[in-house]
Every structure is written in C-alpha cells, then in structure tokens.
Design a protein around this nucleic acid. Structure first.
Lengths: 128, 128
DNA sequence: CCGCATCCGATTTGATACTG
DNA sequence: CAGTATCAAATCGGATGCGG
C-alpha cells in the first residue's frame, strides 16, 4: 500500500526525529554561520578571519573553527614555514551550506530596517 | 598603492557594516529558528509549540516568543476565554523567513549523516 | 604568526513553584 | 492553559600568558 495519505500540503522537513535539531545545534551558535559566510569567496588565514568577522575573539574563532573542521564543513591547512601560516577553507560539504548563509544574509539586509522599526516603534498610542 | 587587486567575483552581502550581524544575533540563538520553523504551516498554541519543539523549556519558549513578537516575526493572539487560549503565528515578515528556515532544515537532514560521520569517523588510521 | 590553556565575569538555561 | 519569578548550574566570551 503505499498510499501515502498525508493530508499535508507540503512535506514538513522538520520533526524528523531530531536530525534537524542535531545539526541546528551545531550551526546556530553565535559564530559558525558568520565564519562560513566569511569563507564564501575563498581560503582565509586565521588573522584575516579575525579581521573579517568584527567582534569575534581569538578564543571564539579558534573554538568555532575547531568545531567546523570537526564537522567537515571547513578544512584547515597548516604550512610549516616561518612565520607559520594556516589557511581555512570551506570543504565541498561546507560549500553546499554557503548559498544558504548568503540567502540568510541577504534576508537580514533586506529586512533589517523593518525589524528594527518593529523593535523600537511598536509602542502603544499612549505616547503623548 | 593601490592596488587592491582583490578579485571579487560577486557582491558580498556580508560586511555591510553590521546589518547582517545585527539580525543574525537575533535569529541565531538556540531556539528562534526552530520556533519559526514550527510555525511554518499555521498558527500554534503555546502548549502545541512546547510539544512540537522537543527539549525546549517553558521559560525559553516564552522568552523566544517574546523576542520574535517584538521583532515582528511572530504575532500573538490571546483569546479571552476559559481556559485561556493564545495562538502564535508568523507575520507576513516572518513568512519571508520561513522558506530559508525550511531550506536550512532540508540541508540539515540531507547532510546529517555526512556531518556525523566526520565528527565521529575522522579518526586516524590507527584504528586497530 | 598561529592557537591553545587558564582564569574569571557575564549571560544563558533549566527546574521548580506560583499566579491569572 | 498560559505565563511569571526565582535560584542554581552550565555555558559563553574576553583578557592574558605560554608554546610551536
């Protein structure tokens, strides 16, 4: 039988038993998506990433990169030279995520004003 | 001088001076995207959300909803009846974010195994 | 230059109990 | 049912110092 009698209008990708949550918990921390976004155009050195992502601390960059490398989203290449050089780059797997990050970034830019307006302006008419 | 020979291939949507960061800081907390995703198909009551998002605490759900309402991504409708009923729903603005969340969720499902394999299996060949 | 380890304060989170 | 309040715990995040 095979009848998939699903009454839903579209296949709900959430609620698959935790797969989404599992991955979301990884990428929805404060910096992961920013780092992936920063690497969208090509490899970057540690210091370059630090400058590209304003506000991130060395510690958080290190930790975030370690996680991303562990998950296989980013690759790390250390060149044994003096001075040392280390480059980070999105892996093929990471590349598949980049477009989504960019889409999210574009959404953020596009709706930033509206969100800010809501956040500040939603005051009641009692304002006199 | 001059020579910024930066070969920029496409307009980088990041680094616009903080707009992305501003919004990202809002939505990249642990629960916001999950809540938006849970509301993708229609209004849900408080308790329904609690059940839909496994693992969230009452407190976190309350706080997250409050933020989302404040930002205008979610609307809250309280019906003055007994027992009380409150429904949450994505606003038109929130609806524009839903597709991105779904895309992210689909990505998560699609690459979950690969990520987990990397996380666990990246062990050195010493595995005897 | 890269990046890890430690200390320490700030923020976030969750369990529980209580109100409308 | 929906939401608040309080407290303790866990985590985050930054500054600093050290090692490769």
């Amino acid at each position: 039988m095979t009848g998939i009698t699903r009454t839903r209008t579209c296949p709900p990708p959430m609620n698959d038993g935790g797969a989404v949550r599992e991955v979301f918990d990884r990428i929805s921390d404060k910096w992961s998506l920013l780092v992936v976004g920063a690497l969208r155009e090509g490899p970057l050195r540690f210091g370059e990433l630090e400058k590209a992502i304003t506000g991130i601390s060395q510690r958080m960059l290190t930790l975030t990169l370690k996680h991303l490398v562990q998950d296989g989203l980013v690759s790390r290449t250390a060149y044994a030279e003096v001075p040392p050089r280390v480059e980070y780059e999105v892996t093929p797997l990471g590349k598949t995520l980049v477009p989504l990050v960019i889409a999210l970034a574009e959404w953020a830019i596009e709706h930033r004003d509206e969100i800010n307006a809501n956040r500040r302006g939603a005051l009641p008419p009692t304002g006199s």
